[in-house]
Amino acid sequence: MEWYLPVIWAGLIGTAVAMYVILDGFDLGIGVLFPFARKEEERDVMMNSVAPFWDGNETWLVLGGGGLWVAFPQAYAVIMPALYLPVIGMLLALVLRGVSFEFRWVAKPSHRMWDIAFAGGSIVAAFLQGVILGGLIQGVAVVDGQYAGGAFDWLTPFAVFTGLAVVAGYGLLGATWLVMRTAGPTQDLGRQYAPVLLALVLGAMVVISLWTPLTVERIATRWFSLPNFFFLWPVPFAAAGVGYLVWHWLRAGREGLPFVGSILLFLLGYAGLVISTVPYLVPPHLTFWDTAAAPASQIFLLIGTVFLLPLVLGYTVFVYWVFRGKVSPGEGYH
């Protein structure tokens, strides 16, 4: 019954997660790059470049998690206990780096502790988000619709690798954001680290593209069986092409395009993961349809979403537009 509702909701949650990964990705990435800034003024500018946006960005995380609960309560009820420790760890890391935005300013001049909390919290949160991703791709033990594994099932070399890959990926978004939104030493910092991070991200994408089909048969079948292969082979080539363009734009001194290209790269990587796992929400056991909420519940929130999400997107765009342009040193309300 109403087979399309779960598909719509999977699309919506997928969109929320993609929005989150890109938007909070660049502001977490600023935290990843924070230790590499040399001067206090540089750190001020870096932080100010994302300060008006960060809590709006993190709201997508609430929408992703909340949306999962609303639309797929069973998946939510399996994934959260299965990934209990990395999820809680990520949330605590987000607490530390989130309050640093305010505390760092109020604490001045003795704010060293919040520099460390911001950088450490951002790096740990990024890493654990990658671990959560890796843990999900690998699959979760489910018996009778309940999580049936141990506390550390997620802790594997693959999950650690995806964790590091996400740190590098967010770092790339952060670096290209600095190139686009700032000038002077922070822009140079972005220019300096973006190519390194780009190389790491592309390398990680290659490794994950080989690692997953080699260890998970379902993923190998998805990509290499016919006729799927005919439709899917452009995805990795597109990623390679975009990777080259980002490198080229960075070298050519372009300011906005490397950031756009990094977002595209993320979206392609994301698309690859979606292709690998659809239609599973909790691979390899539970699909969209297995875990869907009652149609009445999905419809009730869908009606609101149809009207509210465009509004949300509208004022998100509005706020990015009004804060456009280069961030100058000393800007802020403090």
Binding site: G66, Y76, A294, L309
Partner: peptide, 19 residues
């Protein structure tokens, strides 16, 4: 609890986020 009540109070939380 999330599984038991997700159909009913999940959307209320969803509306909180969106509105």
């Amino acid at each position: 609890f999330s599984e038991f009540s997700g159909n009913v109070i999940g959307p209320l939380i969803g509306y909180e986020v969106l509105t």
